[in-house]
Design a protein around this nucleic acid. Structure first.
Lengths: 210, 210, 210, 210
DNA sequence: GCATAAACGAGACGGTACGTCAGGTCTTTAA
DNA sequence: TTAAAGACCTGACGTACCGTCTCGTTTATGC
C-alpha cells in the first residue's frame, strides 16, 4: 500500500493501470512534514489537514499512501534517517567514537526526541512500533554490535562482556541527554570520546586492579 | 491554580467558602487514569471524556483541578512515582546496585515508557516539561550524584570523571531497554549488578593481566 | 431524538440532566437555513458546514438535533409552513377561493419548489418522506376535503364526485405552475377565483346556452 | 468489471482497431443509469463514480459526453421519454382521455417523480432546467393546447376559458398523485376518463346551469 | 437552622481534526 | 485517437474530543 508494502513484496505487481502515483506529491508531503517540524511543530501536534495544506495536496492524496497520521509521521522519520557513514578502518576505539558522533549528530538533529513520542503512540498500532524498531533502531544496534564483536576478537575489548549491554552503555548517555536533561551536553564535541574512553578504562580507581 | 499551586504558595487563601473539593473525586480521577493505562491504553490516546466516564465524574471536576489533559496525565505520573528507599550504608558499589534496582523496578512498572510521550508533548507546554524534569528526574539524578561524589571521596570511584556522565552511563542501559528494545533485559535481576560492575572494571582488557 | 420524537412521545421524559439544549442555537440554525435559501441557495446545494458557519454554531450542535442534513432541511420546511387562516363562513365557493389563495401564497413563498427536491431525496429515508406528507400535505388535504364534503351536504357541489379527485383538480394548477411553468401565472390575484369558478361551471359549453 | 459493458450491451466487438466503441460506451452509460434507477436508486443519490462502475466505463468517458452529472441525468430522462402516440381522430373528449392515459403511463413509469428533483437542482444550472421544460414539458403542453383549441373551435369546449389553465386542470391531478399522495390513484384505468368528464360537466350541481 | 457559596454529575456549547466519499480534471498504458 | 483506470485537488460528510459553559443538586460553613 505504501512504501512499506513495496519493500515487503518482492515485485510482480502486474501492469499498473491508471495514472501512476505522483512522486512529486509524495515528496511535497514529506517535505511539508519536515518543514512544519523545523518550524517548531511537535510530531504529536501535527494535523493531516495542516500537512496537506502546507504541501498543497489534497488529504486523500495522503491517505492514499499512508493509512493514518501515525504511519505517515513514522515513515517520514524512517526516510529522514541520516545515512550512516562507512566506518572504514582504525582501532576499535576510534571507530566507536565515530559511531557515537553519528548518534550525537542524529540526536542533535532534534528530531530524535519527537521520535520517542511516536514509539509510545504506536502501542495502539504495534506493527508500526515494530517497524521503527526494525528499520531504524535495529540496524544501528547491529552495526554497533558487529564492531564490538570485532573489537573483542582483536583483543581491544574484554571478551567476557555481553555485547548488547556494552551497546546500551555506549548509547545510553546520548539518550539520557536527549530526553532527560536536554539542555546540557550534546553539543560538546568531545563527548563521544569521553564516553568511550571512560568505558574503556572503567570507573574504579586505577590502583584497584588487585 | 491546581494542587501544584497549592503546594507552591504558602497559604493565606482566606477562608474557603462553599462546598470543599471532594477528595474522593480526585482519587477517582487518578484511579481511572491508572486503570485505563493498565487496561492497555497509551497515555497519548487517552481522552478526558473517557477518563471522566471511567471515574464517574463530570469533566468540569477534572478541569477544576488540572488546567488541561497533559497536566493531569503528568500529575498522575508524578504521584505514582515509586517511593525511593533509604539507601543506608554499604560500599558505594552495593548502594549503586540498589539504586539501579530501583530504576529497574520503576521501568518495569511499565509506566515509564509512556512517560516519555509526555516529555515530547510538553514542548507545547514547557513548564510542564520542566516540572517533570524537576520533580521526577532531577531528584533521582541528585541522589545518584551525591552517592557518586561520596564514592569518589572514599576512593571507591575514580575522581577524574564527570559525575553527571557517570550517572548517565548508569541510567542509560535502563532507558535503552525501556524504549529501544523493550522485549529484552529488564527482568533480569542481575542486570543492575552487571552494569555497575562492568562500569567499575572498564571494558578494556585487563592491562596488567595475571 | 428531535422535535419529531418530542411530538411522538407523550411525555414522561424523566428529569432532563445536564445543560439543556439552547433554544437560541436552534433558532439560529433554522434561521441560517432560511437566510441561505433567500440568498438564492437551493435546498439540495446546501451544506451543513455552510449552515453551521452562517448560524455561528458548531456542526455538532446541528447533529445533536437532527440525524443528518436531509432531516434538518425537512424540519425547516415543516416549521416554516405558513399558518393556515381560519376559514370561517361564507359560501363554499368563497371559502374555496380563500383556500386556494393560501396555496398560491405558499407556492409564491418560493420555498415550495425546493421542497419537491427533498421529497425525492427522501426515498432513501422513507420515514422522512412520510413525515412531510403527514405533517404538511395531509393536513392541507384534510381541510380541503372537509370543506368539499360540507359543500356537497349543502348542495353547493355535486355529490357524485370523489372529493379527493376534486381536491386534486383544485390544487393541481398551483402545482403545475410552481414546477412546470414557474414563470407564469402564480402572481395573478384572480387565479384562485378563476380556477374555482371554472371547475364549478365545467368546461363543456352551456347546454341550454344562447 | 472490465468487460461488463461488453456483456451488458450485446453489440458486436468486431475489430478493436481505430475507434471501437464510441456508441457502445454511450449506451452502456445510459443503460447503467436506468438500471440503477430501477434498482431503487433516486436520481439525486446517484454518483458519477457509481454510474461509471456500473457501466464499466471510465469517468472521463462520461465527462467527455456530458458537462456534469445533472446534464447526464437530464439527458437520460429526455431520451427515455415515452413516444407519444398519434392521436388520430375522435371527439375531443376521447382524445383528451387518450392523452391523459399517456400522462398516467409516463407517471407510472416511476421516473417522473425523480425528475422533479432535477428541476430544483437545476436552479444552479438554469439552462438545464430550461432544457427539460423545453424538450419534455413544452411539447406535451403544446399538443394539449392544440387539442384544446381545436375542441373550442369545434364547439366541444367552452371558448371563454384560458386553454393553458385548462391544460393545468387536466394535468394537475396526475401530478398531485405522483408527488403528494403517490400511494393512491394512478393505477386506476378509469382515472383519465373520470378527470376529463368531471371537468367537462363541472362540479356544481346540475340545476345550477342558469 | 438557614442562607450562602462553591463543588458536584451531566451534558450542551463553538471549535478543530479525523478519515471517507464524491465531483470534475488530468495522466498514464493498451488497443 | 479513444478508452479504462485511477490519481489529483477540492470540499463536504458525520464523528470524536477539546476546554468552556450552564443546568439542577448536594454539602459544607457562617450568620
Amino acid at each position: 500500500m505504501t512504501s512499506a508494502a513495496a519493500a515487503g513484496t518482492g515485485a510482480a505487481e502486474g501492469t499498473p493501470r491508471g495514472r501512476p502515483r505522483s512522486e512529486a506529491a509524495e515528496l511535497a508531503i514529506v517535505g511539508a512534514v519536515l518543514r512544519l517540524l523545523d518550524r517548531g511543530g511537535s510530531l504529536g501536534g501535527m494535523s493531516v489537514e495542516g500537512i496537506a495544506a502546507e504541501a498543497g495536496v489534497g488529504k486523500a492524496t495522503i491517505y492514499r499512501r499512508w493509512p493514518n497520521k501515525e504511519a505517515l509521521l513514522l515513515d517520514v522519520l524512517v526516510r529522514t534517517e541520516l545515512p550512516e557513514p562507512e566506518y572504514v578502518d582504525g582501532t576499535v576505539r576510534d571507530v566507536l567514537v565515530e559511531i557515537m558522533e553519528f548518534f550525537r549528530m542524529a540526536a542533535l538533529a532534534r528530531r530524535e526526541r519527537s521520535t520517542l513520542t511516536l514509539l509510545d503512540q504506536f502501542r495502539a498500532v504495534p506493527e508500526l512500533h515494530q517497524r521503527y524498531l526494525d528499520q531504524v533502531i535495529a540496524p544501528r544496534r547491529a552495526r554497533l554490535r558487529k564492531l564490538i564483536t570485532r573489537g573483542m576478537e582483536r583483543g581491544e575489548i574484554r571478551a567476557d562482556i555481553d555485547p548488547d549491554l556494552l551497546g546500551d552503555l555506549l548509547v545510553g548517555p546520548m539518550l539520557t541527554r536527549t530526553l532527560l536533561h536536554p539542555d546540557a551536553g550534546l553539543d560538546d564535541p568531545t563527548l563521544s570520546a569521553t564516553i568511550v574512553d571512560t568505558l574503556l578504562q572503567g570507573i574504579a580507581p586505577v590502583a584497584s586492579g588487585t
